Computed example of a mutant assay.
Amino acid sequence: MTLTTGAELAPQDYTITRADLRAYAEASGDHNPIHQDEAVATAVGLPGVIAHGMYTMALVARAVATWTDGAEVVDLGCRFTAPVVVPAEGGATVRVAGTVKAVEDGLATLALEVTSGEEKVLGAPKAVVRLG
């Protein structure tokens, strides 16, 4: 794996379905009904059923692993800024794009952009990986 400062990383697209949300709820133990029940989600002011924030972050980690051939991730962070709304039929696409911000001292810092539709769903997402 060779990462150079300024390199753009090929965008990775992931589709999230309601079945994915059910599987994630089972695996994580997060059974909050806003991730399953349309009526509950809209009753609390959401536009519909939303993906778990940590599931979205897991997709970011998956993109980073793809770009870096599974390099050790030493830092991964963001702010949750907008929900990923998952329709009952089909799914929602999350796109993870990135640029290599810096490479120094055996570490590469990746500046990321995570969107669903035209909306950024994570604020200031970044990853730092150890170069092998």
Rank of each mutant, 00 (worst) to 15 (best):
V114M: 11
G91Q: 04
A82V: 10
E113T: 13
T93I: 04
V121R: 05
V85W: 15
E119I: 08
L112R: 03
G70I: 08
A108L: 04
A71I: 00
D105I: 03
K101Q: 15
L110F: 10
A111F: 12
D75Q: 09
E89Y: 15
R79G: 06
S116A: 05
G77R: 06
D105M: 15
G77A: 00
V86H: 02
L110D: 01
V103N: 01
V85F: 13
G123S: 05
E113M: 13
G90V: 00
A88D: 12
G123D: 01
E118S: 11
T109A: 04
T93C: 08
T99Q: 12
K120T: 09
A97C: 14
L76H: 02
E89R: 03
G91S: 06
T93Q: 12
R79F: 13
A108H: 05
K101L: 15
E119Y: 12
T109D: 01
G117Q: 14
V74N: 03
R95P: 11
V74H: 05
E89I: 04
K120N: 04
C78M: 08
E72G: 02
R95H: 14
G91K: 01
E113Q: 07
T81D: 05
T109S: 09
K120L: 13
G106V: 03
K101F: 14
A88K: 09
E119C: 10
V96Y: 12
P83C: 01
A82I: 13
T115D: 07
V114L: 06
V74T: 09
E118W: 14
R95L: 03
A92E: 01
T93W: 05
G106E: 01
G70N: 06
T81C: 08
R95A: 10
L110V: 13
V86P: 11
C78Y: 08
L76S: 05
A92Q: 02
V103P: 12
V94P: 00
A108V: 02
P83E: 00
S116N: 07
T81N: 11
V94C: 03
F80D: 01
C78I: 15
R95F: 15
R79N: 02
V96E: 00
V100C: 09
A88R: 03
T81Q: 07
E118H: 09
A97V: 14
V86D: 02
P125M: 00
T115R: 15
E118A: 11
V84N: 05
